[in-house]
Simulated scan of single mutants.
Amino acid sequence: MFTSSHSAARRRALGAATAAALALTLVACGSSSESSMPGMDHGTKPSASSTPRVTPSTGGMPGMDHMADGSGLSDTEHGFRLTSRDMTLPAGGHAAYRFTVTGPDRKPVTDFAVDQTKRMHFYAIRADLTGFQHIHPTMAEGGAWTARPASLAPGSWRLFASFTPDSGAGRGRALVLSRTVTVPGAAARVPLPAAASTAETDGYTVAVKGKPMAGMAHPLIVTITRNGKPVAGLQPYLDSYAHLTAFHEGDTAFAHLHPQTKVNGDHGGPELSFHAELPKSGNWRLFLQFRTGGKLHTAALTLHVG
């Protein structure tokens, strides 16, 4: 009698253990990743409450510029895309680069906000960070833009379009998109000048003070002198006394450094303040544009970011 009762109790215990194991197995299966092929992420994932939601990039074909990273090194971001049929441009003369910006609805964008007096800022830079050009293209009816960069040397170039949509889902969002083109011919790579705090252009000396760190906001102070004397007669250019653009050595990542000095007639300088937030460490090539006596000047120098 004792033996029979003991066996029945043992069977009930085994049955309960089996049911518990089965329940745990079902729970584990229900909480596992849907992807379980070799090489896929099928490990334990944090709970949804502790993991930020990430929207995947819209594209991934090798060789395409679809991986947005906030540095302008993509032709697609937030559903907006820079499209063009021009894969090459001729060397020398004023080549015409035609492009369109399409929105999340895949239709050409035609409504752009005015930023620093322009609806579109267009930049051209060669892979070795030479040949910098800042252009303001024209838009035809229907959203087709034409930019005319001048004097392109043979080599690989990256072309940036900087703009802010003024309607639709992306209204007010500042975007920088880019594509690459090839200029046929024998390309002689120019070594990047060493990092320096000063540069000369058209008889002016531009000095930059500040040591920015990657990914951190940092002020940069620019001082302009001529023949050792402070220049205090800078004229407004694009709603500021100077326009400062930077490109990263190696990948030509883009950064626009925003001016903080208020404009007050033709009385800019000699000291100008900029808000700098350069996302990557390494060398950046800075291009400072300023106007005096109705003439636009461009100074270039290399800045090292830690």
Rank of each mutant, 00 (worst) to 15 (best):
1 M>T: 13
2 F>Y: 04
2 F>L: 14
3 T>K: 15
3 T>E: 15
3 T>F: 12
5 S>W: 10
10 R>F: 06
12 R>Y: 06
12 R>G: 00
13 A>M: 10
14 L>R: 14
15 G>E: 12
15 G>T: 11
17 A>E: 13
21 A>V: 13
23 A>I: 14
24 L>D: 12
25 T>F: 12
28 A>D: 03
28 A>G: 11
30 G>S: 15
33 S>H: 10
36 S>V: 11
37 M>E: 12
40 M>A: 14
46 P>A: 12
52 P>H: 09
54 V>H: 11
54 V>T: 14
55 T>E: 14
59 G>L: 05
64 M>A: 12
64 M>W: 09
72 G>N: 09
77 E>F: 05
78 H>R: 12
83 T>I: 15
83 T>E: 11
84 S>L: 03
90 P>G: 09
92 G>M: 02
92 G>A: 02
97 Y>P: 00
97 Y>H: 14
97 Y>S: 02
98 R>N: 11
99 F>R: 06
100 T>V: 15
107 K>P: 00
113 A>G: 03
115 D>T: 07
116 Q>A: 13
119 R>C: 10
119 R>H: 10
120 M>V: 05
120 M>R: 02
121 H>T: 03
122 F>A: 03
124 A>I: 02
127 A>H: 11
129 L>S: 11
134 H>I: 10
139 M>W: 08
140 A>P: 04
145 W>D: 10
147 A>G: 07
148 R>F: 02
153 A>H: 03
156 S>I: 12
157 W>C: 06
163 F>H: 01
167 S>G: 04
169 A>C: 01
169 A>Y: 00
171 R>N: 08
175 L>T: 06
175 L>M: 13
176 V>P: 00
176 V>Y: 00
178 S>C: 05
179 R>F: 02
180 T>P: 00
181 V>R: 06
182 T>F: 04
184 P>R: 11
185 G>E: 05
192 L>G: 07
194 A>K: 13
197 S>W: 01
203 G>R: 05
211 K>R: 14
212 P>E: 03
214 A>T: 04
215 G>V: 08
217 A>H: 07
221 I>R: 11
222 V>C: 05
228 G>F: 04
228 G>R: 05
229 K>A: 15
230 P>S: 09
230 P>F: 03
231 V>S: 07
233 G>V: 01
236 P>H: 10
238 L>V: 05
242 A>L: 07
250 G>E: 06
250 G>W: 09
251 D>R: 15
251 D>I: 07
251 D>G: 08
253 A>V: 09
253 A>H: 09
258 H>Y: 04
258 H>F: 06
260 Q>K: 13
263 V>K: 10
265 G>E: 12
267 H>D: 13
273 S>H: 07
273 S>T: 14
275 H>F: 05
278 L>N: 02
279 P>S: 09
279 P>W: 01
281 S>D: 13
283 N>V: 02
286 L>Y: 08
286 L>S: 01
287 F>E: 03
289 Q>I: 03
290 F>C: 06
292 T>I: 12
292 T>Y: 03
294 G>R: 07
294 G>T: 05
299 A>I: 06
305 V>Y: 00
306 G>Y: 01
